[in-house]
Design a protein around this nucleic acid. Sequence first.
DNA 1: AAGGCGGGGGG
DNA 2: CCCCCAGCCTT
Length: 346
Amino acid sequence: MDFNHKLISWYSDKKRELPWRETSNPYYIWLSEIILQQTQVKQGLPYYNAFITQYPTIFDLANASETSILKLWQGLGYYSRARNLHFTAKHIVNELNGKFPDTYNDLLKLKGVGDYTASAIASIAFNEVAAVVDGNVYRVLSRYFGIETPINSTLGIKEFKSLASTLIDLHQPATYNQAIMEFGAIQCKPKNPDCSVCPFQDSCVALQNQMVDVLPVKLKKTKVTVKYFNFLVFMDPNKKTLFEKRTKKGIWQHLYQFPLIESEKSLTPEEFHLLNFEDYVLKQETLDYSLYNEADIVHKLSHQHLHTKFWIIDVAELPEEAILIKTLTKYPSPVLISEFIDNFSF
DNA sequence: AAGGCGGGGGG
DNA sequence: CCCCCAGCCTT
């Protein structure tokens, strides 16, 4: 029995039942693939269900506001996925007459759709022979064939895509693609896979050369930078506060937060007192403030560690754009902020 | 070619 | 503490 047949046999026996496997609607397939980019099934599943409930068709998604889509996406991370999701829904509805692109080449033109996602939608929704290469596929192929080329090098990306394209089952590309990814997720796991129950024990190069734990090879790690965030939680007598949309390029674009002052180090109350708040409130002799968290809250992103302090500031008057504190949770915000809102007793 | 972009979970 | 996850975009 060859690689394909063993793999698909394993899949028909062990696969999980997942909602996006019960449909061939390209809108649902696309939605699931965007949600699952760099995201485990367990984490993405509730978001998928929420999205198809709130936006049953691509027209519903196209007609929604970006803010409401980001709110539903809140907590999932990589928020450009949600912004591109909205952009592409509008594009398909308004420019493509609501007809979902149905080939790899046309899917690849969509914003937020790269080689992997175009291949996944083309094969799963339209049965096109297009090989997917995700983190699971890299791992399965590098181990099974004993390939030591770094998976994130230019050569490795080409090499694994090429190999995957020679392996894909020409008669059932949808099943084959999902099978190899599921196999990587459930059996050929990153850490401590149970090779004693693997159907490829007698043919896996990595297993026979005791290289399972060193494959796949991956180049370098991202260096982490440390930042110091001071969030200004204003409170006025009308139970209002300031909450702003992040418009600049970096993290959390288009999400909302309390006014932020970044500092070179963690500030003491004395140092904080010397800051200038004239951007937010009228100059006052005495500013009545307190510190929510004595020790920094350290919020860890992939390549930034955010040492954070929340400063509670009572003021007599706030600018026009202040919003009611009880409406804070209607806005999409980073987990760091939403957890503060949930925990602080306003 | 390299770096930026989240948050959760596992070992 | 580290690495990984149904990757993509920008520079």
